[in-house]
Design a protein around this nucleic acid. Structure first.
Lengths: 231, 231
DNA sequence: ATTTGACGTATTGTTGACAAAATGCGTGAT
DNA sequence: ATCACGCATTTTGTCAACAATACGTCAAAT
C-alpha cells in the first residue's frame, strides 16, 4: 500500500486539509490567483474528489477560495474594500482579546508568549522568511487561544488567513507585516496586567500594518459596458 | 421532468440550502438535536447527496451542525460555555456596528430601520411567533448590512444562528429573545446620530438577552423534517 | 482586421452501486 | 439481571463513469 497519506497512512480529515491549505496561504506558498483543481487536490491529499469538494466549499464561504462553476477554484484575490473590512473587524476583536488576557494572565500564559516570541526572534535571526510569516500570524492566534474563546479563535483564524492574502496583494512579500517589536511590547503589557495599554498597542499595531498596505489597485483600463450604458 | 426544484425548476445552490437550513434553525423549526440525514436532505432539496455534503460540512464548521462520522449529522446543542462565547463576541461586534451606523446614518438607513421595526410590530400584534423570531434576528443583521461591512455581516449571520440554538436550549421558545422596545430605542439613537448611546443600548440589550437565559436545557420534541424545512 | 460560430479541452456536477463504519437489538451464557 | 457477541439496519464514504458547463482556440465570414 503506497504511503501516500499524511498521518500513519490515514487519509487527512477535511479539517486537516483546510488547515494545510490555510497554512500554505499564510506562508504565501499558495498566492492569490493560484488555481485549485479538484483532481489535483485529491491526488495531493490522497483522497477522493468527494472529500475535497466540501473543503473547497468551506474555504469559498470564508472568502479564501473563489469557486468558478464548472471551471475550478482559485485562491481569492481580495479587493481593497475587502481588505479594509478585514482590518475593521480585527480592530474590534484583537484589542478586546489582549484586554481580556491581561485581566487574567498567569505564568503559564506568560511562558507561552515568551516561548513564541523566542521562536519569532530565532526565525528572524536565521532569516527564515516563511517561518517568520507563519509565526507572526500565529502570535495573534495564540493570543486568541489563550484568551479562551474558541469561537473567537475560529474567526480570528479566518481573518488571519484573509490578512495573508491581503498582504500578499498589497504589500511586498519580503516585508513581514508584523514588526516583532510590537509583539514584544504587547506581550509585556499583558504580562504586567495592563489591559488598556495592551489594547492600545494592538490597535496601533493593526493600524500600522494596514497603513503599510498600498490599497490603490494597479492602474487598469477598467471599463464596464453595462455600467457605461446604464446612463 | 418532475417539478421537484424550488426556484424556476432549478436546483438550489449550496448557498441557498445553507440559508434555508439556517432560517429553519433561527425560526426553531429545526431545534437542537434534530437529525439531518444526507438522503433525506437531498430528497427535500431535490438534489443529489454530493450537493448536500458540502452544505453539512460548512454548517458543521460554523458550529450549527454536528457531524457524526458514518452516523449522520444533527443540529448542534451548544454548551453553556459556547453560549457565553457567542455573546462575548456579539458584545464586541454589535455596539461597534451601531456606532459606525450612527456616525453616517442617512434617510435611507432610517427608512429601512423604520420599515423593519414596523414589520416587527405587526408580527407582534398578530401574535405571529415564528415571524417575530425571524424578524428580531434580522434586525441585528440589517444593522450589520447597513453598516456596510460584508465580512462583518457574514460573521453576524453565523452568530445569529448560533444564538437561536442557544436561545432554544436555554430560554423558553415562547419568549422572543429581543424585546421590541430595545430595537426601537437603538434605531432612534442611530437616527439621532448618537453613536455612544446606540452602543450602550446595544450592549445593554445583549446583556439582557444573555441574562435571560437559563442553563437548564428543554425537553426534546418530535417533528417532521420536511415540514420543518418547508418554510 | 474584426467578429462570430464551431469544436475541443478542462473541469465540475451527477449518478448509481457498493464498501465501510457505527449503532441498536436479540439471544445465549453467566 | 447483566453482559457479551453476532447480526441487522442505518447511514456515510468511496468509486468510476459519464453528463454538463465554461472557456479558449481556430477557422470562416464579413
Amino acid at each position: 500500500m503506497p504511503a501516500k497519506t499524511t498521518h500513519a497512512n490515514r487519509p487527512p480529515t477535511q479539517e486537516q486539509m483546510v488547515e494545510r491549505i490555510m497554512a500554505a496561504v499564510v506562508e504565501h506558498r499558495l498566492p492569490p490567483g493560484t488555481r485549485l483543481v479538484e483532481d489535483r487536490l485529491a491526488q495531493v491529499f490522497g483522497v477522493n474528489r468527494a472529500r475535497v469538494r466540501p473543503v473547497l466549499a468551506r474555504l469559498a464561504h470564508e472568502g479564501i477560495v473563489t469557486l468558478h462553476p464548472n471551471r475550478g477554484a482559485a485562491i481569492s484575490e481580495p479587493t481593497a474594500e475587502q481588505a479594509r473590512e478585514v482590518f475593521e473587524l480585527r480592530r474590534l476583536l484583537e484589542p478586546a482579546i489582549v484586554q481580556t488576557l491581561a485581566a487574567r494572565t498567569d505564568r503559564a500564559v506568560e511562558r507561552r508568549l515568551e516561548a513564541h516570541l523566542k521562536r519569532e526572534a530565532e526565525a528572524a535571526a536565521r532569516d527564515d522568511h516563511r517561518a517568520l510569516i507563519r509565526l507572526t500570524g500565529e502570535f495573534h492566534l495564540l493570543l486568541a487561544e489563550l484568551a479562551g474563546n474558541q469561537l473567537m479563535l475560529r474567526m480570528l483564524r479566518e481573518l488571519e488567513t484573509l490578512t495573508s492574502l491581503v498582504i500578499y496583494l498589497y504589500e511586498s512579500p519580503n516585508t513581514p507585516a508584523c514588526r516583532g517589536d510590537d509583539h514584544v511590547e504587547i506581550a509585556a503589557a499583558i504580562a504586567r496586567g495592563d489591559g488598556a495599554r495592551a489594547a492600545r498597542l494592538m490597535l496601533a499595531h493593526l493600524n500600522e500594518v494596514e497603513e503599510g498596505l498600498d490599497m490603490a489597485p494597479p492602474p487598469e483600463a477598467a471599463f464596464d459596458l453595462a455600467e457605461a450604458l446604464a446612463g
